[in-house]
Structures are given as C-alpha cells and as structure tokens.
C-alpha cells in the first residue's frame, strides 16, 4: 500500500554507523530515497558503498542509527524485534546472492519455510508452494535437494521462496552475482515478469550493467550516499 504520493518505501535522513571496537564506521550518511509502488529499482555502486546495508534496513533485518524507514506507511525502524519478525514474514521476500537454501530440505520444503509462519493448513501450504514453483518453472523439481540443482535452478527456488507469501516488497542482493550469463538472464526475465505482470515492487542490488538495464530505475551509491538517480 503506497502513500498519497504513490510511494511504497520512504527512507528519510538515514545514518548507519557500525561500531567495531572503539572505531565507528559510518556506512550510510543522511540517505533519502523514495520508491513508488510497482517500481523495479536497481541499486549500483562500488563494493563497500553500503548497498547491502541499505537493503538490510529496507528488509527490517537491521535498524538505522538515525532517520526513518517507512514502508506501506509503517515506521519499521520503530517496531519491536518481535513485531519486526512478523512484519518481515508478511511483507518482504528476500533473494540472496548465494541462494541460502536449507541444504537438508528439498525444493518444495525450502519454498514452504516462510509459510510455516502463517496460519495456512498443510494442503493450503502445498498449493501455494506448487504455484510459486510453477511461477519459476521448477514444479517438476520439487523433490530435489539444493545440491541436486544448478546454481540458476537454486536461485529460482530462492525466488519461489521469496514470493510464496505474496510479499509487498521483493529485495534481491546481487541475485545474479553467482550465475553465468544464461542463468542470469533467466533470473532477470523472471524478476521482470514478476514486476510487470504481477506488479511486484522490486529492489535489486547489482554490479552488472546488463542486469541493471532490466530495471525501471537505477540508483547509484557511493560512500553511503546516493549519487545519481536515473530512469533506466
């Protein structure tokens, strides 16, 4: 649900400081960013510029030192740990560079994981898993374990897991960073389709210009600040 100006995400004056021993590391400084609902945003920038840190704040995995993060009108930086966990389960789908699937669970059970936190019955969960796996074109591999799947297939399972709860926001941290060109393209096709056909709002961190071109907007970051902001 977006605000009056159509913005789903609103980051205002965000600072993020990490403490390593006595040393303070200023990673984000006075960062502001608005993301309208239905946008596919690519976040680019050199290594260490704070992209993942920003993504973590948007995902409610971490809290800003200063400033506010508002998503769907909710100040997620002010939620308690417990409420934040519930909020993540309902509103965020995460896709990681190294897939981060559970090696001991097969594809279907990996996709089912976020559904365990809902009130859905076993059969309903099964149905949702089936739908999500067919969206990524892997229904026929549902019983396979991560080690039996290629990198691209694992990432598709990762995407299925991210979308199975029908989240408000899809956050992807270098989703193609570990894949070859062909697999990357398949993943990007998939993300683009999710954005265009299902209207998912997607924020994707990437180092790859070709990947970024698939997005509807590219934001560049350097040393914890946004430098350029251009439509792709």
């Amino acid at each position: 649900m977006a605000d009056a100006n159509g913005n789903l995400v609103e980051v205002t004056g965000v600072d993020k400081v990490f403490h390593r021993g006595s040393e303070d590391i200023h990673v984000l400084g006075g960062l502001c960013l608005k993301i309208p609902e239905g946008e596919f945003l690519a976040l680019m920038g050199p290594s260490g510029s704070g992209k993942s840190t920003l993504l973590n704040l948007l995902a409610g995995l971490d809290r800003p030192t200063e400033g506010s993060v508002t998503i769907s009108g909710e100040r997620i930086d002010q939620l308690s740990e417990r409420r934040l966990a519930g909020w993540r389960a309902r509103h965020v789908g995460l896709v990681f560079q190294f897939y981060n699937l559970m090696p001991t669970l097969n594809a279907a059970r990996n996709v089912e994981l976020p559904l365990l936190l809902t009130h859905l019955s076993r059969t309903e969960r099964k149905k949702h898993v089936e739908v999500a796996l067919s969206v990524v074109g892997l229904n026929h591999r549902h019983g396979h374990y991560p080690r039996q799947l290629s990198g691209g297939e694992q990432q598709r399972v990762g995407i299925a897991r991210a979308i199975v709860t029908d989240p408000t926001l899809l956050l992807c941290d270098e989703p193609t960073g570990d894949l070859d060109r062909k697999s990357s393209d398949e993943i990007l096709d998939l993300l683009q389709a999710l954005n265009q056909d299902q209207g998912k709002t997607i924020i994707m961190v990437t180092h790859d210009n070709d990947a970024a071109k698939r997005a509807s907007r590219i934001v560049h970051m350097n040393k914890g600040k946004l430098t350029t902001d251009a439509a792709a």
Binding site: E81, A85, R88, R90, L94, F96
Partner: peptide, 15 residues
C-alpha cells in the same frame, strides 16, 4: 549460523 540467520530473515523470531 548462516542458515539460522536466513530463518530469522524469513521472519522466524529469536524465540
């Protein structure tokens, strides 16, 4: 450790 972090990222609480 990493898998536990992922579970939490998915919305599993600390408890």
């Amino acid at each position: 450790i990493q898998e536990i972090a992922v579970l939490k990222a998915l919305g599993f609480t600390h408890t």
